[in-house]
Design a binder for these strands. Structure first.
Length: 618
RNA sequence: GGCCCCGUAGCUCAGUUGGAUAGAGCGCGAGCCUUCUAAGCUUGAGGUCGCAGGUUCGAAUCCUGCCGGGGUCGCCA
């Protein structure tokens, strides 16, 4: 494992000490894992609060307050603890020694960009799959949300100590890509001089295939015109998919999203020689450990189904007709079914269509099995909300192919409503007239797109307003947080001008100086509040990573920026609270160290979200 | 009809994974620029956490049932 060990943070240290105290009072069998150490809702309660007495009271056969008193006595002598109070139903409120906050700030400056990293992932491998769109057209804004979410989640998990693989599943099999091929073929004929007129119903009308047709024309001349569809289709399809994937990769790159692995659905059926991105297809480290890989059959889906059948999870049977949709073509017949009900699904699921080809589900099972075979027992899929009905069967499949050893968490991202100044942007599905992800990124910028999409829980519908996200106001979170970062550097610039030699030129030298600052001079309530906020960051990262919720990072950054702006403005009213105090160099350096801590955490969090942290915004 | 998601201030949304008196922005009211970026800050009003039960020391959070909105239900991916 390459992850460097992150030092324990304040909250994990105190949790360990509270647990030790509980074990000392109640014995080692106490249910220590239920204990939480967190900042109290009301700062007047102290610096940290623990529920230890309340969660342990019943097992101990004591009243919560009574147990709290015992635990409080045990914690009173702790080297970090100034004061212990028991309050309410049995909370133990801890007031920490004054120096811990300065120590916490020093830790930020010492660790720099790595402050906030955690070991809770333990180097375990996690596979995060996201976007996974049909390569039949440009990505739209909805795809973008999945991509941004998946990418930020991957970064968050990496920050928390997981070994993350970012993966894109190319849906390059099935009927849709054949339609793509026929559409491209039409453009090819057009490029060879035919008048094609209106694009027929059922084909993709977008302009984006014109270039594909032209390339085919220049490469093949009239040769493809002479072939039967069965012959030209694979050729055109391959070319069209490759071009679309190149576009998609570009669009993702514009959002600074670069998946580690592109995995071709088609390769599962036809073998890997058809994989357009073979170099990243397999993880060589795990090939060797899986004997099957060496004799990998061409049709992996067939092999997967055979395996499941051997385990008794596949059978021939009948299904009740669907409850809705068009029942006209419903045909009651015996079919090949996966026994997903055995793993918690509502009904068993078909693996073959009536024409004998694989259902999407069948191929997806093989795909997820490949993840397991590549060493992943921890899988996360990011899907659009319209695929919610698919979760149970996929989780069932993962359990089946891994013999219960792997787990799949599916994160659904809700749809995006594109607005401009409150008015819906027309999203015609006809022609190429819908707004693409790329157009949005080009218009408002990567940072605005990413932050706005992350400043919302994944399962809540998102209103994305093209006018609002570039507004320079508090109403626009991405600006507000970036401005906080820029404001920090503005203070450095002013300090350099006002203090002259006192502040070194280079960031590294400045940092070295500020590490030595007398941070115990930071005693203003606003300053202490910011210090507490900074100390909370590592815990926030851990909680967000455990919950698979990157939006928590965005909200934390907003809150930190807000506290910073507030402290800055207090200096307007009370000059003794300004960051730069002309006649007190020591205090100034202490406050600059605080600013350094703030910009460090802001930059670190923004980087995690893939958002720029500018030094200046003019 | 089955399953999944959502329902918190007038509006848009958080809520530290069961904690103490439920928070922020916008909007509305009252204030702060000869001083580090006013692109900012301070402050007031505003709540039956959809409804009703249940679980327990304690529920916006967990369970059950309703109400409302969205999604989905073999041969799309």
């Amino acid at each position: 494992m390459t992850a460097s060990l992150a030092p324990p943070h304040l909250f994990s240290i105190m949790l360990a000490r509270v647990q030790a105290a509980a074990a000392a009072v109640l014995g080692p069998q106490a249910a220590l894992t239920r204990i939480v150490v967190e900042p109290p809702r009301d700062a007047s309660h102290g610096d940290m609060a623990t529920n230890a007495a309340m969660v342990l009271a019943k097992d101990a056969g004591m009243k919560p307050r009574e147990l709290a008193d015992k635990l409080a006595a045990a914690l009173a002598g702790d080297s970090l603890v100034e004061k212990v109070d028991v309050a309410g139903p049995g909370f133990i409120n801890l007031t920490l020694k004054a120096h811990v906050w300065g120590d916490a700030l020093r830790a930020v400056l010492e660790q720099g960009a790595s402050y906030g990293r955690s070991n809770i992932g333990g180097g375990h491998r996690v596979n995060v799959e996201y976007v996974s769109a049909n390569p039949t057209g440009p990505l739209h804004v909805g795809h973008g949300r999945g991509a941004v979410f998946g990418d930020a989640l991957a970064s968050l998990l990496a920050c928390a100590g997981f070994a993350v693989t970012r993966e894109y599943y190319i849906n390059d099999a099935g009927a849709q890509v054949d339609v793509l091929a026929r559409s491209a073929y039409l453009r090819y004929r057009e490029a060879r001089g035919e008048t094609i007129g209106e694009i027929p119903e059922g084909l993709y009308p977008g302009d984006y295939l014109i270039e594909c047709g032209q390339e085919l024309a220049s490469d093949y001349g009239d040769k493809l015109l002479e072939l039967a569809e069965a012959e030209w289709l694979p050729i055109v399809r391959r070319r069209a998919i490759d071009m679309m994937m190149a576009e998609i990769r570009n669009d993702l790159a514009a959002l600074r999203i670069v998946p580690d692995v592109f995995y071709s659905e088609r390769s599962l059926i036809e073998g890997e020689e058809h994989d357009p991105f073979a170099p990243t297809h397999h993880d060589a480290r795990f090939e060797a450990t899986h004997p099957n890989a060496a004799v990998r059959p061409t049709d992996v889906v067939a092999a997967t189904i055979a395996d499941l059948r051997a385990m008794g999870h596949v059978y021939e049977g009948r299904l009740p007709p669907p409850k809705s949709g068009n029942l006209e073509d419903w045909e009651d017949r015996e079919q090949t079914l996966f026994r997903s009900t055995e793993f918690g699904d509502d009904v068993d699921r078909p693996l073959l269509k009536s024409d004998g080809s694989y259902t999407y589900f069948a191929t997806d099972i093989a795909y997820h099995k490949s993840k397991f075979d590549r060493g992943f027992t921890d899988m996360i899929d990011v899907w659009g909300a319209d695929h919610g009905g698919y979760i149970k069967r996929m989780q069932a499949a993962v359990k089946a192919v891994s013999d219960g050893k792997a787990t799949l968490d599916v994160k659904l991202v809700q749809l995006v409503r594109l607005l401009r100044a409150g008015e819906p942007v027309k999203m015609s599905k006809r022609a190429g007239s819908y707004v693409t992800l790329r157009e949005v990124v080009d218009e408002v910028g990567r940072s605005a797109v990413r932050f706005d999409m992350l400043y919302r829980k994944n399962d809540a519908v998102l209103d994305f307003d093209l006018a609002k996200v570039i507004e320079a106001s508090r109403d626009n979170p991405v600006f507000y947080v970036q401005y906080g970062h820029a404001r920090g550097y503005s203070i450095f610039r002013t300090a350099k001008a006002e203090l002259g030699d006192a502040l070194p030129e280079t960031p590294a030298a400045r940092l070295a100086l500020l590490k030595e600052a007398a941070v115990d001079r930071l005693t203003d309530p606003g300053e202490l509040s910011i210090l507490r906020k900074l100390a909370l960051y590592p815990r926030l990262i851990e909680a967000a990573a455990s919950a698979h919720e990157p939006h928590r990072v965005a909200f934390y950054l907003y809150e930190l920026a807000s506290e910073f702006h507030g402290q800055w403005s207090r200096g307007k009213d009370s000059s003794h609270l300004r960051f730069i105090i002309q006649d007190d160099r020591q205090l100034t350096l202490a406050r600059l160290a605080l600013v350094q801590g703030i910009v460090t955490v802001l930059a670190s969090g923004l980087a995690l979200l893939g958002v720029d942290a500018p030094d200046e915004m003019r």
